[in-house]
């Protein structure tokens, strides 16, 4: 096998592995993220609960941190934010940020 063909094959395997890891529908929501959409709707949702899709990750991380410490007033998000670790919040925030184009 030529180095070039090996490279191509390697890319195909890498792509296939990436597909298997994320599922055919694209990026899979990380731990906990699927629950957010119970209240936070898609972009353009009217009402008092904002959509989180496409929001910069740093904003979501900062909001969750402020909810957790009580710096930011909340009705339920203070109680919910305390159930997630920093790593989980970062992963959820990154994933939400990447969902901007989704309906």
């Amino acid at each position: 096998m030529s180095p070039q063909r090996r490279l191509v094959l390697g890319c195909i395997i890498a792509a296939a592995t990436a597909m298997a890891g994320t599922g055919p529908a694209g990026a899979e929501p990380p731990t906990g993220a699927a629950s957010c959409s119970g209240c936070h709707g898609p972009a353009g949702t009217e009402g008092p609960v904002p959509s989180l899709l496409g929001r910069p990750a740093a904003e979501t991380v900062a909001a969750m941190a402020a909810f957790r410490t009580g710096q930011r007033e909340a009705t339920v998000m203070d109680r919910i934010a305390k159930g997630f670790t920093d790593d989980e919040i970062r992963a959820i925030a990154d994933w939400l940020a990447g969902q901007g184009a989704e309906p």
């Binding site: 119970g38 209240c39 936070h40 709707g41 949702t45 008092p48 009705t75 339920v76």
Partner: peptide, 19 residues
């Protein structure tokens, strides 16, 4: 706060049933 939670209740029902 009670009014806000009543509004959030309605918003939840709307979002959840839409989803």
């Amino acid at each position: 706060v009670r009014q806000a939670e009543a509004a959030y209740a309605e918003a939840w029902f709307q979002t959840a049933t839409d989803e």
